[in-house]
Simulated assay, not measured.
Amino acid sequence: MFQFNKRYFLIAILLFIIEVLIALYVQDAIIRPYVGDFLVVILLYCLLKAFLNISLLPAAISVLLFAYLIEILQYFHLVHRLGLQHSKLATTVIGSSFEWIDLIAYTAGIIFTIIVEKRYRPAVQRSS
């Protein structure tokens, strides 16, 4: 089950750098909240695929359910309940406010990932 995949790992690193740049330098109403959420599920998917030999749909669904769980925990104010509301890192990573549209951004990111994977994966990988 464990298998390092350099390609997915490099994509995950690139997406992580983009996410950090968005968090540090973008203060707008579209890119930071929605593009960041769209990209984060792709990042998590690539990170999962970088270390585990798991097929497309189980990986995509796992990442999507994890993202939904984090968003639901935001609804229940997890950061405040843990006493981490003053931690910039905790509020950035876990988040501090629930928004329905974030669930849509996560879903769109996973749908995009599935489409790209099905379309661009080499034929050899598709058969396995």
Rank of each mutant, 00 (worst) to 15 (best):
M1E: 08
M1T: 09
N5M: 02
N5Q: 13
K6Q: 12
Y8F: 13
F9Y: 12
I11F: 13
A12H: 01
I13P: 08
L14K: 10
L15A: 02
V20Y: 00
V20W: 07
I22M: 06
L24W: 03
L24F: 11
V26Q: 01
Q27N: 14
Q27T: 11
Q27I: 07
I30S: 05
I31S: 03
Y34A: 10
V35P: 03
F38Y: 07
F38P: 07
L43C: 10
L48C: 09
K49S: 01
N53V: 06
N53G: 05
A59F: 00
I61F: 06
L64E: 02
L65R: 07
Y68E: 01
Y68M: 05
Y68F: 11
I70H: 09
I70R: 05
E71I: 08
L73W: 08
L73C: 03
Q74E: 03
L78I: 09
R81G: 05
S87Y: 14
L89W: 09
T91V: 15
T92K: 12
V93Q: 08
F98A: 02
F98V: 00
E99Q: 14
Y106M: 05
T107P: 01
A108V: 01
I111S: 08
T113Q: 04
I115Q: 09
I115G: 04
E117A: 09
R119P: 09
R121K: 10
V124E: 12
R126K: 15
S127V: 15
S128Y: 12
